[in-house]
Design a protein around this nucleic acid. Sequence first.
DNA 1: ACGTTACTTTCAAAAGC
DNA 2: GCTTTAAAAAGTAACGT
Lengths: 186, 205
Amino acid sequence: MTDPKESITIENVVASTGIGQELDLESVAMDLVGADYDPEQFPGLVYRTQDPKSAALIFRSGKIVCTGAKSTDDVHESLAIVFDELRDLSIQVEDDPEITVQNIVSSADLGRTLNLNAIAIGLGLESIEYEPEQFPGLVYRLDDPEVVALLFGSGKLVITGGKQVEDAKEAVDVISNRLEELGLLE
Amino acid sequence: RLRKWQERIRTKDAGERNLQFALSETDRMASALAIPRSVREVACVMYRRALDENLIRGRSIEGVATSTLYAACRMEGIPRSLEEVAAVSRVDRKEIGRTYRYVAQELSLKMEPVNPKKYVPRFCSELELSEEVQGKANEIIDTTTEKGLLSGKSPTGYAAAAIYASSLLCNEKKTQREVADVAQVTEVTIRNRYQEQIEAMGIHH
DNA sequence: ACGTTACTTTCAAAAGC
DNA sequence: GCTTTAAAAAGTAACGT
């Protein structure tokens, strides 16, 4: 029996940062190749990096959101590219702006199919949300770690809402143990 | 003071009017869906509860009224799908679904997932299928559910496939289109569920 | 009856309506 | 609450061929 924790894959990391400088997005949009800026639709300018792949949302305030990266290292690499692009536009950027991870999305596999109906009742109808007419996944909110897990009939799951890489491992442990003690695994 | 007094009367009147509107809308939708009086009353009681607990704030009256009607049907064992209630509501399916989830959470309604069997009598009678077909469809649902086929699947599509399969088995064939129309799912969904179900039942056709 | 694309759910940040 | 970004899970739907 392989440990489900070994199956954990980070799918997306969202982080925020700032260059400590106000920006004129109109001119940045003109000079930055590949920038998408439509202030009527959204106040942020969208800039995509290719390697590592990510999307950066750049705001007038100089604050930046980076999403789509597959690891925290990739977030730093992507943002380093964004910072350099801005410097090339002769915009002052702090030497190493503080980068805060805001959310990590992971996927994992329990290695067994799940009876979501039984799990819904076993975990308590008041603590879960399972509406297969609307979505095939069962929504399970954990207190510790404070994350949200989506459980599927295949045994695969998605863990989101965590700010640390360890949160997903703890969540998989908590979920595996709960299902095990309720006799709902296999 | 007088102004405050008038305001109270005004808001009270407005509240009364809103409540009356919600109850008449519930009645209108329930009639359109041929939902029994007893279930309408459950829906109205639920709406009043939602009102008392200020769950309407930030939401439309019609959205909450539709959601409580949907919830009441499920609670009373004669579910209507979101597609069906959305067809008689001026609120779209997505909004009804999210409002229902919110109301169910806030009112601590311990709602179990809908058993596809609950749709069998109504869908079969609309298709003029016999008791035999209904029994066989229920049997397919029970057996395949025990084998774990139901997880994550929509109850209406699941019921539709079982009905389609049993109509074949009982020589009262209905086309996938006919079943899909009454269940408000696509033929693709019926085909997919049907294949899984007959395989799990060990039926060859 | 395929295949492709797209929508449902969860999460967080950003600025502004 | 909404707008935008990205990503996974699995089911369902709506296209075109």
